[in-house]
Every structure is written in structure tokens, then in C-alpha cells.
């Protein structure tokens, strides 16, 4: 027989994990707004996610989806190393978008690798909006 204490704890865990992306995403997007960005848009984020760019090292066109896959709820595979990458969608992977420093670290690395430049505040805000919605 399950007691109510356990049920309450389980409910809190479920509620907690559903909301877990908000603190980090809100904090990041607030800082992007301060940098002049606004009206973050998931559809625009998705468009950029699949936008092909020539990658100098690979000598081929790549996009975010090349390694993370276009469907954020599935496992991605690194186009060069073959490393499997856990799903980006917070609904599948509760760790996603919970750590602001990690978000910025990977934006910096992956924007430079994929697009050859850092992403703008607007682009990062749109990406977060898109990823958070999945």
C-alpha cells in the first residue's frame, strides 16, 4: 500500500521536471533582451536548426540537425565522430536547458563549428524557444 507521502513526493518530482527548463531559459532570454533581442520565436529557431552552411573542416554543408537530428526527440549522431548524442528535447531528456553556463558553452562551440561564427542574441533566444517547445 502506497502512502500519501510517497505520492506527494512523486507528484512534486513530476511537476519539478516539467518546469525544470524555465529558470535557465528565462535567465538566458532576459540577458538576450538586454543585448537588444526580442520576440523569441520557435518556428524561426527550427528554420535555423535546419539551415545548411558550408563547414570548412568537413568540406560539406552541415546544420544543427546533421548531428542532433531534425527531430529533437530522437538520439542524434555526430556526423564525424559517430558519437551518439542524447535527445535535445527536454521532454525526452530532463537535463536539457537546465544549466545556463552549459547552454552558453555549447552555443559558442557549436555556432562556431557549424556556422563559422558566434550566434547572435536573437538567434540564441530563438533556438532556446524552439528546443524548449519539444
Amino acid at each position: 500500500m502506497m502512502n500519501w507521502g510517497v505520492v506527494t513526493v512523486l507528484l512534486l518530482i513530476v511537476a519539478g521536471s516539467a518546469m525544470a527548463t524555465e529558470p535557465a531559459v528565462n535567465e538566458r532570454q532576459a540577458s538576450y533582451r538586454e543585448a537588444g533581442a526580442s520576440n523569441f520565436d520557435a518556428a524561426r529557431g527550427e528554420g535555423m536548426w535546419n539551415q545548411q552552411q558550408m563547414q570548412q573542416e568537413m568540406r560539406q554543408s552541415v546544420s544543427c540537425a546533421s548531428c542532433h537530428s531534425a527531430n529533437l526527440r530522437t538520439v542524434g549522431k555526430h556526423i564525424r565522430t559517430g558519437k551518439l548524442i542524447d535527445p535535445m528535447a527536454p521532454s525526452m531528456n530532463a537535463e536539457r536547458l537546465t544549466d545556463a553556463a552549459k547552454i552558453e558553452k555549447w552555443f559558442r562551440r557549436n555556432c562556431k563549428w557549424t556556422w563559422g561564427r558566434e550566434c547572435t542574441a536573437q538567434e540564441k533566444g530563438d533556438f532556446l524557444q524552439f528546443i524548449q517547445s519539444r
Partner: peptide, 12 residues
Amino acid sequence: LENHFGENAELD
């Protein structure tokens, strides 16, 4: 680390 065997692995 900016070009770490073909990957960008920059750290703070």
C-alpha cells in the same frame, strides 16, 4: 581547443 582535432571544444 578552438580547433580540437576538427571540433570546437573551447572552455571558459
